[in-house]
Amino acid sequence: MSQILEYARLLDEAAFNAKAVGQIDPQGELSLSDAYAVQSASIQRRVERGERRIGVKMGFTSRAKMIQMGIDDVIWGRLSDQMQYEEGSSVPFERFVHPRVEPELAFVLKKPLSGNVTAVEALAAVEAIAPALEIIDSRYDDFKFSLSDVIADNASSSGFVIGAWNDPQQDFSNLGLTLNIDGRTVQVGSTAAILGHPLRSLVAAARLSAAAGEPLQAGWVVMAGGATSAEWIKPGQYVSIEMERLGVAGFHVKG
């Protein structure tokens, strides 16, 4: 346990100070359960500083990424209120180490959702859906990490922006979307890239968070996972997502 708490301190301070650190598990010897224990302890340090848990994010939500990482399930991380930025606002570049951005779909829940639920049950718990952007950021030197490193580092989650909320009682299984930087389209994709249907990501979030003793709560946000490859961001840029029928969301990168 002392080693887990030391890793949690190291990664928490790396994120807080936006300073890269060496890998904690370069050989991939740390079990995934211990890696999640590091993540949990690291987020608990944030809560003790006054941050508030407001949801979860899902990662490795494409089959290709799972195969690349040698896993057969998604990973997840925890969201706090200090990670959310208002749509259209300026996001300070200096808060990050190696920031990239992914276009996503976000859920907000109207009631708790826990355990092994069906897609129908998951949808019944959804208040609204929205286009969203997630800023992912590895805190490791030279952008090198193992799977356990990523999980311990809060699944690389660092910030997010959510657009206008929409009625979830519509087909959002295959909505076209673009990721844009300074008005130029840099990625084209679809919500179908998120496990074939974003609802599957929400089902997985309910299962994994409940297994960790932290079931999804009413009012929580669930970031469903990247719908395209991530793009590096730089100071001075304006980053946006445009999603079919659901609208847009964006932020400025403040240098």
Rank of each mutant, 00 (worst) to 15 (best):
M1V: 13
S2Q: 14
A8P: 12
A8M: 12
L11F: 11
A20E: 13
I24W: 01
E29P: 07
S31P: 12
L32C: 05
D34W: 04
D34F: 04
A37D: 11
V38A: 03
Q39C: 12
A41F: 01
S42I: 07
I43V: 09
V56C: 05
G59L: 05
F60A: 10
T61Q: 10
S62M: 04
R63K: 09
A64W: 03
K65D: 01
M66Q: 10
M66G: 01
M66T: 08
Q68H: 08
D73P: 05
G77Y: 02
S80M: 06
M83R: 00
S90C: 07
V91G: 02
K110M: 01
A119V: 15
E121C: 13
A122I: 15
V126S: 04
A128F: 01
A130W: 02
D137C: 04
Y140E: 02
F145R: 09
F145H: 02
D149L: 03
V150T: 15
S158H: 06
G163H: 07
P168W: 11
F172G: 01
F172C: 00
G183S: 13
G183W: 10
R184F: 02
V186P: 14
P198T: 10
P198Y: 05
V203Y: 02
V203Q: 10
L208C: 11
S209F: 02
S209V: 01
A210S: 14
A210T: 15
Q217P: 14
W220H: 13
V222P: 07
V222L: 07
G225R: 05
T228Y: 09
A230F: 08
E231S: 06
E231F: 01
S240H: 04
E242Q: 14
G247V: 12
G250D: 10
V253I: 03
V253E: 09
